[in-house]
Structures are given as structure tokens and as C-alpha cells.
């Protein structure tokens, strides 16, 4: 449903993404992994339009979205979260969610339950813990109408309990026919949940395959551990 073709991006001479091509198939959980600086977040930013690629095409269900403004890409059906959570600090949980979509209190409660965030609706986002803010952001991205959900390191900085809950959330998303693209550092988490794993190194796709094939691959080990 989403395909990148020869996407490149340089920042002042440094190639952050180098002729990157891959595809995300419908109703799969696809994970992007790779060492720090491999270009994972840059790819996310390019897909969601926050960073413009220097070259290459990005197709979402046969529509080229490479030149669209971020809000149009969002409307085209891509919902995402950020590595450093971006909630609306001075707004209540409810208002944070209403920005994503007009919903009644019942729907809002349901979506909050599905991410295991149990807090009064009028609580300000700034009063939540960091882990809870991540859950709120996740709920918000789930609520926004979308065909593809992109999560940037959802387990970073959250406690083990929330991490377990995240796994459950992702499994139920897949069961409900959703498509997810994930950036994740936690290998156990990635291998336990992904259908496809894409390994990036220095802006290039190093390897693509099923989790069990990736674990065995020598090149991948080298990218992580050095030669």
C-alpha cells in the first residue's frame, strides 16, 4: 500500500537517506530497524511530508504523495507518532483527541481504553507522565482516520508494563486489518511482533525479510556491532 522508490535526502553534504526503496504491504506490521543515524526518522519525516526528499517517489495506494503538504498527506490516510512525543500540552486529553477527529465521549473513552490510558478526560496533557503522554499520542494517531499507522519508537522511555500493553495494542490492530510501519530499537519487541523487518544502515536498505531470517543475517550483525 505504501511504496518508496529511490528516495534520497542529504543534509549539507551528508546523505541521510540514499536511494531507499521498500514497500509496506497491507495488513502487515513492518519494522524499520538500524543503528543510530541510519536514517529511520528521516524516512518517517519524508513519508509524512515534514521533510522534502531530494529525489524519488512515494506512493500511497498508487497516489504519489511526495510533493504534498504534511496536512494533505495526513488526510490521504497516514497517521503517525513521534520519537519525542508531541502532545498539545496545554489542552485536555479530550481536546487532544478531538483535534484528530470529531468524536463523542463514548468513542473517546473507548479509544483511551484500547491504549490502556485511564485518566479523567479533562486532565491536561502536561499533567501526564511521559509514558502516558506517549499513550495519548498513540490514541490520537489511532483516532485520526487513516490507512497506515506509523509509530516512531513507541517503546522508548516507557515502563515495561506499558511496553507489554503496546504489544497487545499492535496485535489487536493487526487483527482488525490495520497496517503499521514501526521504528523500534527493542529487538525482542520487533522480532516478536513484525511480519517484515527492514534493516537500514547509512541511509540504505541493507536487508529486508522475515524476523527469523534477519536475526541470522551476518550483515545485520555487522551493522549493529561493527566489524
Amino acid at each position: 500500500m505504501l511504496s518508496l522508490n529511490n528516495v534520497s535526502k542529504s543534509f549539507g553534504g551528508v546523505k541521510a537517506v540514499d536511494k531507499c526503496s521498500f514497500e509496506v504491504k497491507e495488513n502487515t506490521i513492518t519494522s524499520l530497524i538500524g543503528p543510530n543515524g541510519a536514517g529511520k526518522t528521516t524516512i518517517f519525516n519524508i513519508i509524512s511530508g515534514l521533510t522534502k526528499a531530494d529525489s524519488g517517489t512515494i506512493r500511497l495506494s498508487d497516489r504519489n504523495i511526495a510533493d504534498l503538504a504534511p496536512y494533505k498527506i495526513a488526510k490521504a490516510g497516514i497517521s503517525r507518532t513521534f520519537q519525542l512525543t508531541k502532545v498539545f500540552r496545554n489542552m485536555s486529553i479530550k481536546d487532544n483527541l478531538l483535534i484528530a477527529k470529531n468524536a463523542n465521549d463514548n468513542d473517546i473513552k473507548k479509544i483511551l481504553e484500547s491504549v490502556y490510558l485511564h485518566k479523567p478526560l479533562e486532565t491536561l496533557a502536561s499533567e501526564l507522565s511521559y509514558g502516558q503522554q506517549r499513550l495519548l499520542e498513540l490514541a490520537r494517531s489511532l483516532l485520526m482516520p487513516h490507512s497506515l499507522l506509523m509509530l516512531d519508537e513507541p517503546t522508548a522511555g516507557v515502563n515495561p508494563e506499558i511496553r507489554r500493553e503496546l504489544k497487545l495494542i499492535l496485535r489487536s490492530l493487526k487483527k482488525n486489518g490495520k497496517t503499521v510501519l514501526l521504528i523500534e530499537h527493542d529487538m525482542e519487541f520487533v522480532m516478536g511482533i513484525s511480519d517484515v523487518v527492514i534493516v537500514l544502515n547509512e541511509g540504505k536498505v541493507l536487508k529486508e525479510g522475515k524476523p527469523k531470517d534477519i536475526v541470522k543475517d551476518k550483515k545485520v550483525l555487522e551493522a549493529y556491532l561493527g566489524k
Binding site: 496536512y71 495526513a74 513521534f82 508531541k86 502532545v87 481536546d95
Partner: peptide
Amino acid sequence: SETGKIFQAIRDNEVAASVLGKNTY
């Protein structure tokens, strides 16, 4: 109003508002 909420979302985090499909411009 809904518009007012979007104003506040832009104030708190313009990037987040834009990836939620709001034309912040």
C-alpha cells in the same frame, strides 16, 4: 469552537497539528 481548538493545537505543537491533517498555514 473547533477552529479555536485548532488554534490552540498550533500553539502547543504546530507539527503535530499538521500531521493530524490540519492546514496550519
